[in-house]
């Protein structure tokens, strides 16, 4: 229990530091987004009017008060207002989230299927050349720029082959190419860690024992190796989430899809700091929670770790 509380406290601390850093860098700096937008002489605003606008955004009070106010707001799900459009950031994000969730989930599922298929085929293949070729594939996948891959897919499938329409596609048709684009960079690290764990676990004595008792390579892989390979793969969850977010920004920009990624891209182009700040801190929150869950799940899934974490308790009992 103490271990769990310690991990939760550490996660909360990381989030608080992240929030503070974001606040200091994005809000406390002189020349904030409000000034950039409204000091433009073309708008013809007097200094008093600017001061009133700053007041309405809460930018005129002392920094410490601002800090407390913003922190409380974030805890309550209030992320302030977009400087560009004036809409609440929470509503912008809530509107964009479903689109991105559909894209990210489909991309993730496809990536898992591709990575497992690739790793299993490469390990079980009877042909050395096929194994070698498949093992080289993830290195190729990580070297391809995602935005370029998206454009290439459009070029090939939409314009050369005419299979998928990019002009006013249906909801499913419009999802095919973005999901393919997103799945490639996600599947690469997954496939690499699967291949590596297959090799490492396959070299362990217990696998040799199972093989010696007459099990085939496929049986060993499915029953013994795959289950053990799940654990190292689980530690990738946080990294994969980061890749999904980054991939969504690029994919949604390339395909002109509405979503969190598109909001982020526009926020940067228009210097809309409150929106970017909210997206960044929400992603950090999800990342920290994912890693917390993985850390806490690890001893549950791996009996060997359970004994080390709870060892002291067992001895005292």
């Amino acid at each position: 229990m103490r271990y769990v509380l310690g991990r939760v406290a550490q996660a909360a601390l990381v989030l608080l530091i992240a929030f503070t850093a974001a606040f200091v860098l994005l809000q406390a700096m002189p020349g904030d987004a409000i000034m950039i937008k409204f000091q433009n002489p073309e708008l013809g605003l007097s200094p008093e009017q600017i001061a009133r606008i700053r007041e309405s955004y809460g930018a005129d009070v002392p920094l410490v008060a601002q800090y407390g106010h913003t922190l409380l707001g974030f805890l309550g799900g209030d992320f302030g207002y977009s400087v560009v459009s004036g809409t609440p950031v929470s509503r912008l994000i809530a509107d964009a989230l479903p689109n991105t969730l559909v894209l990210a989930l489909s991309g993730f599922v496809l990536a898992v299927v591709v990575a497992v298929a690739l790793a299993v085929t490469a390990t079980l293949s009877r042909f050395a050349w096929l194994g070698t070729a498949l093992r080289a594939l993830p290195s190729l996948f990580v070297s391809v720029p995602v935005f370029w891959l998206g454009i290439m897919l459009v070029q090939l499938f939409s314009f050369q082959l005419g299979l998928v329409s990019v002009i006013n596609p249906g909801p499913i048709e419009g999802l095919i190419l973005p999901v393919l684009t997103l799945a490639v960079p996600i599947s690469a690290p997954l496939a690499q860690i699967l291949l590596r764990s297959f090799d490492e676990i396959g070299a362990q004595p217990f696998v040799a024992v199972v093989r010696a008792r007459g099990a085939g390579a496929g049986w060993v892989l499915g029953r013994n190796v795959l289950r053990n390979a799940l654990l190292p793969t689980l530690t990738m969850a946080g990294l994969l989430f980061g890749e999904l977010i980054g991939g969504a920004v690029v994919t949604e920009t390339v395909f002109g899809r509405a979503g969190i990624g598109r909001i982020t891209e526009q926020a940067v182009s228009q210097q809309d700091t409150p929106v970017l700040q909210a997206v960044v801190l929400l992603s950090a929150l999800v990342f920290v929670v994912i890693n917390l869950v993985v850390d806490l799940l690890y001893p549950v899934l791996d009996p060997r770790l359970r004994s080390t974490v709870r060892g002291r308790k067992a001895v005292s009992a």
């Binding site: 990381v14 989030l15 992240a18 989430f241 980061g242 890749e243 977010i245 980054g246 920004v249 690029v250 982020t264 940067v268 970017l276 997206v279 960044v280 992603s283 950090a284 990342f287 920290v288």
Partner: peptide, 9 residues
């Protein structure tokens, strides 16, 4: 904790 692309942005 911050996804790479978001940190860059």
């Amino acid at each position: 904790a911050i996804p790479q692309l978001l940190l860059m942005l």
